[in-house]
Write a protein that binds this DNA or RNA. Structure first.
Lengths: 222, 222
DNA sequence: ACGATTACTGACTCATAAGTAAGTTACTCT
DNA sequence: AGAGTAACTTACTTATGAGTCAGTAATCGT
């Protein structure tokens, strides 16, 4: 009745420039909810505000859409985290700052979803997996290792294998990020605020790699 | 030809007692390889050495089989890990021992698969998820927290929130376990032996929660 | 030895969703 | 304006695999 537009407001619009991104965002949502195999292209289409056929104008098939999504999404965020590394200050402060920034990234829903999808579907896309590993965790570890190295040189940190330390720091940080993103469903995260968890992380990490605070044998401060 | 057995060796045997376990093991393999949605019941049947119909004699449907698998498998291992907690010795030694035992459990393929499946399919089985969380990570964290508490009392460890410490220790340990299980595909794990990683873990963790380190200077191998 | 019973098989049905292509609508350019 | 074309839709085909069930083979009881 009032559906058939006589004059204005067309039923749909041509937006070839924006479609890929709209579809990729919808794909993240639906793949994140159901996984690669169980996700329906029609759901992605509906969520993107287009019809199923349109997806095939921009992506050859379901798998390719999935891969493209994995490739595209992290590149949006990573750079901004890295840009924030402060040059000056002590290694301690650098580490604190980097942990705080990563913490904000790592708790976002897109990251949690991506991490989960990568983990569960990596079997069938080895190249994709390696790219992700290189672009997210290894990058993070290398930066952490760099900070640790500088801290060792300045005497702030104890002598520890910087790459190993980077791996350790990364693992606590990322796991807690994933947990925090799903906080409501995880009992032992429910009563903690994000800032509390971050404080615990920083405290734990700094003690793990820090120089002994006091060289004397037993000296418990209140 | 020689297939139709005249006298001995029947084409199949009746093993109602062993079928459930056989099917569950096969399910772990196939679900682990393809995920819940993409796994084919026929593949599970073949891997279990039965036909598809047989699965339906023991499990009402695919989802139920999946859930039963998630429920059944971890219970086989957990108890054995917990049994190994030594009562005597210092908290330091207890922690070392517990990390070593968990390390062996956490690197096994079944654990890696289960962890991955839980992470990717938890959406649709909240009760199952909560059970797993309670039975595996929380159990582990509580034990770790207990050891930490004792270490604080004895003055071996610094004053730290034991539950927070338990969470931290658990997260490094488990992530490295998962990585180690998939070592071949993870660049930064390839050149490390399991024992090297364990040493790094223990070193990192003891420093993180330890009192000002013991007199030993540093034991950087090679 | 030979029914009776129970464990198991395999060929079937049927729903679902990926991928396709012919048709339709919005926009462009003269 | 109105022909031309690029963007999009919709109805279709087809493959796949979950779940079923009538029948078959192994084992038990006597």
């Amino acid at each position: 009745m009032s559906e058939s537009t006589h004059a204005n407001s067309p039923r749909w619009r041509r937006l070839p420039g924006e479609r890929p991104r709209q579809i990729l965002d919808a794909a993240l949502e639906v793949f994140g909810e159901r996984g690669l195999a169980a996700a329906r292209l029609e759901d992605i289409a509906r969520s993107a505000g287009v019809s199923k056929g349109t997806i095939y104008l921009y992506f050859p098939n379901k798998e390719a859409l999935f891969c493209e999504m994995i490739r595209e999404i992290p590149s949006r965020h990573i750079a901004s985290v890295e840009a924030m590394i402060s040059e000056s200050a002590t290694a301690r402060e650098q580490l604190r700052a980097y942990l705080r920034n990563s913490w904000d990234y790592v708790r976002t829903p897109p990251f949690e979803i991506l991490y989960r999808l990568i983990l569960s579907e990596l079997h069938h896309f080895p190249d994709l997996y390696e790219q992700f590993i290189e672009e997210v965790p290894m990058r993070s570890m290398r930066i952490l290792a760099g900070i640790v190295t500088r801290g060792i040189e300045s005497g702030e940190f104890r002598e520890i294998d910087p790459l190993a330390a980077g791996r350790m720091l990364h693992s606590v940080l990322f796991v807690h990020g994933v947990w925090a993103a799903k906080r409501a469903r995880i009992p032992f995260m429910r009563d903690l605020s994000d800032n509390q968890v971050l404080d615990q992380l920083v405290d734990f990490c700094l003690h793990a790699i820090g120089q002994a605070p006091a060289p004397t044998a037993s000296h418990v401060h209140t």
